[in-house]
């Protein structure tokens, strides 16, 4: 009995790593551009389909396809910000919300049109099924690898934002965008680069989501809600908080999933709402 629950909690923690990856990009766009991208989940699903298409067409492993796709998603994020989102940010939260809301519906229905309503998964060959034997527990190599990657990404992001030159620029614009423009630090360019970086996280999230769970054209919104809850639970601008928020949500969902599929989702939402009401500033707020 105890072993079963311990096993479930380990599964939950590992799932939390994936959720933290979902949330990284959203956290960056909220923290810097001050808007929630309603299409974040749909972009993840879109790139999952892109990875599926590339891997199938070129007969290559999906992890290799990921390396090919990452420059594309960087460029995609950069152009999306520069061409479209830049024109609506700054004045109010209303317009960027409505534009990304429109994008979300366009992407979902575009995917339905192109790929139908079938469920898909990605495959990375033997990695899918290999498992490790630790003590009395069996854990899949893939979930462990995803979690390790999540930790590495959090540390990498921490370095990027707090140690690199571009990170200082991003934080400067997040601090005071008007001051940046006034002294000649182009916020338009920094925003576009930040959104390009979000694009990179979207590609990584898309790859590991596809490897670990089913997805279909309309899976985007549920991924957005998970990413959103992780960001709010973790605390605005807190990367370590993102990891913690992901783990809490992962555990809640895994335990709820013992009852049925609906409870899996419901348990995650309820735990989020309870913690949010107790600590609206998040668990590890940076500011």
């Amino acid at each position: 009995m105890i072993a079963t629950y311990a096993n479930l909690i380990i599964q939950g923690i590992l799932l939390g790593g994936l959720y933290a990856i979902f949330a990284l990009g959203l956290s960056l766009s909220v923290g810097v551009m001050r808007f929630v991208n309603i299409a974040h989940g749909d972009f993840i699903v879109l790139v999952s389909f892109l990875l599926l298409t590339v891997a199938t067409a070129l007969h290559i492993n999906v992890l290799l396809a990921l390396l090919l796709v990452i420059p594309l998603t960087f460029a995609g994020g950069y152009l999306l910000q520069r061409v479209l989102l830049q024109r609506v940010i700054g004045q109010s939260v209303l317009l960027p919300l409505l534009v990304t809301f429109g994008l979300s519906i366009i992407v979902q229905n575009g995917l339905l049109e192109g790929f139908g309503a079938d469920t898909h998964t990605l495959s990375a060959g033997s990695l899918d099924t290999s498992s490790l034997h630790i003590g009395s527990f069996y854990v899949g190599v893939l979930p462990v690898a995803t979690f390790v990657l999540a930790v590495a990404l959090v540390l990498g992001f921490d370095w990027l934002l707090y140690r690199s030159r571009i990170g200082a620029n991003i934080r400067a614009v997040a601090d005071d965008v008007a001051a940046a423009d006034l002294i000649g630090l182009s916020s338009v360019r920094i925003y576009a680069i930040a959104m390009g970086i979000v694009g990179v996280t979207v590609a990584i999230a898309a790859c590991f989501m596809g490897l670990r769970m089913n997805f279909d054209a309309t899976s985007g919104p549920s991924r957005l809600l998970v990413a959103f809850e992780v960001v709010v639970l973790g605390g605005l601008g807190s990367l370590r908080g993102t990891l913690l928020g992901g783990i809490i949500l992962g555990i809640a969902q895994t335990l709820g999933g013992q009852i049925d599929g609906a409870w899996q989702v419901l348990a995650g939402h309820l735990v989020f709402l309870v913690i949010f009401l107790l600590r609206p500033q998040g668990l590890l707020p940076r500011y």
Partner: peptide
């Protein structure tokens, strides 16, 4: 170079990072 009214530094950046910009 403009030294703006009210200084307009980036408050969460370190002194060095502000200068680096």
């Amino acid at each position: 170079a403009l030294v703006p009214e009210g200084r307009r530094l980036f408050p969460s950046l370190t002194v060095e990072e502000n200068l680096e910009i």
